[in-house]
Design a protein around this nucleic acid. Structure first.
Length: 418
RNA sequence: GUGGGUAUAGCUCAGCUGGUUAGAGCGCCAGAUUGUGGCUCUGGAGGUCAUCGGUUCGAAUCCGAUUAUCCACCCCA
């Protein structure tokens, strides 16, 4: 083995791809019912998009981006997330000219240079949605409900939806002051990283997992209690919308999304059973992003849902994904003439979208039968000189073992609905 | 970037305190008399024991380095 897939990447092998296809089909079906259309953006963007959009104080931008210079000397970055590209495309293609709100979804690969572990890869895949143009909390409710619908339809159990509001720039800066005032008296009790956080982004101190920091965070003022009237009303309204759809949720005042563009509503859906990286879906509102990217101010909200993590949950919960349809017919051939006839027969069947297979290994009759059995085909049919002469053959049902004689001319007709 | 575990056949693993042809189960291929799968039986292919170096008469086994991989931290999907 000379060359392996790069660190942190994974192949989806043929035996596994049906699982991805199943999930993707479910996603498309649900998005259609919600009125979301697919958007496809490039795998790479100018680096500046993420620096401006995601925020250059974030870990994603500071240390996790796949950035390189192309041959024209431009700085290019493999997308680490889907929202900034979607927003860029929204502006670039004047999608704001469409009736509001603009609703879109994507199924994308994303790239972050991190050390791989359970549920974390360098290339991973996200399903995401974005809504531009409405700041109404009903949209927040719709966005969250779409994620929950997907997870429910897939049969996933035991997930927790947690919501929070981190306010608008106004109430947040107010709160920043209060928080810093509180933290400054406890700096000696915080870990070194939290001391850094205190300077750069004090909100993140609340997110630290170290016990001593948690203790300090525990009695810190809570952002949720410091919201301005409008943000408070927005959050209350969102709760009503979730209630009216019977979507259960918890309120976690410590959710602090890692990307700078979030405002007001933030939420995440977590699973306890897939290792340390438990967030399956994370999202929120980003009312300042469009303006940040140089567009006319427009509110927005969306989420990203990790497909590898979703697959982990399905596996862990033993949820079986429907297997693809088996091949309908395997034609076992005896002799050269029959082998040729088999080739033309499977060709005919395939023209009618009937799945059919034949030998390509020069196997004996018995070995062909074994092979057909391993493929899991529904029917087999042995074809030799006699059959070709008579124009009839015996069709064998591999599940029941039953045999029936049929005319070769009727093959398509007989197998059409099999 | 940091810490810990692991590395033997396609897969899951065994290989005792170093002893010479490195094993099992599953999978793959073929056969068990004439043209019919599943069960059973028989045989076969497949390994530079991650790599490099060291200790030793002798290394899959002990030591070191490197690489890969897994898990965890930071952070996130």
């Amino acid at each position: 083995m000379l060359i392996k897939a790069p660190r942190g990447t994974k192949d989806v092998i043929p035996e596994e791809s049906y699982k991805w296809q199943y999930i993707e089909e479910m996603i498309r079906k649900i998005c259609k019912s919600y009125g979301y259309k697919e958007i496809r953006t490039p795998v790479f963007e100018y680096t500046e998009l993420f620096e401006r959009g995601v925020g250059d104080t974030t870990d994603v931008v500071q240390k996790e981006m796949y950035t390189f210079e192309d041959k024209g000397g431009r700085s290019i970055t493999l997308r680490p997330e889907g929202t900034a590209p979607a927003a860029r495309s929204y502006l670039e293609n004047s999608l704001y000219a469409a009736p509001m709100p603009v609703k879109m979804y994507y199924i994308n690969s994303c790239y972050r240079y991190e050390n791989p572990q359970a549920g974390r890869l360098r290339e991973f895949h996200q399903f995401g949605i974005e809504v531009f143009g409405s700041e109404k909390p009903s949209v927040d409710g719709e966005v969250i409900s779409l994620a929950m619908t997907l997870l429910n339809k897939l049969g996933v159990q035991g997930l927790e939806l947690n919501i929070n509001s981190i306010g608008c720039p106004k109430c947040r800066s107010e709160y920043h002051k209060r928080l810093k005032d509180y933290l400054v008296g406890h700096l000696d009790k915080l870990c070194p990283t939290c001391n850094e956080r205190y300077k750069k982004n004090p909100l993140r101190v609340l997110d630290c997992k170290l016990d001593k920091c948690k203790a300090v965070a525990g009695s810190a003022p809570i952002l949720l209690d410091s919201l301005c009237d409008e943000c408070k009303a927005h959050f209350e309204s969102l709760k009503s919308y979730l209630d009216c759809m019977n979507i259960p949720y918890g309120i976690d005042p410590y959710i602090v999304r890692g990307l700078d563009y979030y405002t007001r509503t933030v939420f995440e859906i977590v699973s306890k059973n897939i290792g340390a990286q438990s967030t399956v879906c994370g999202g929120g509102r980003y009312d300042g992003l469009i303006e940040q990217l140089g567009g006319k101010p427009a509110p927005g909200i969306g989420f990203g849902l990790g497909l590898e993590r979703l697959l982990l949950i399905l596996e862990e919960q033993g949820i079986d994904i429907p297997k693809p349809d088996p091949i309908t017919l395997f034609i076992v051939s005896v002799g050269e003439k029959a082998e040729m006839k088999a080739q033309s027969l499977v060709y005919t069947l395939r023209q009618q979208y009937i799945s059919a297979e034949k030998d390509h290994m020069g196997r004996s009759v018995k070995a062909q039968m074994k092979y057909a059995d391993k493929l899991g085909v529904k029917y087999t049919m042995v074809l030799g000189d006699d059959e070709i002469e008579k124009g009839t053959a015996v069709l064998k049902d591999m599940r029941t073992g039953e045999k029936q004689e049929i005319a070769l001319d009727n093959l398509v007709e007989i197998l059409k609905d099999a």
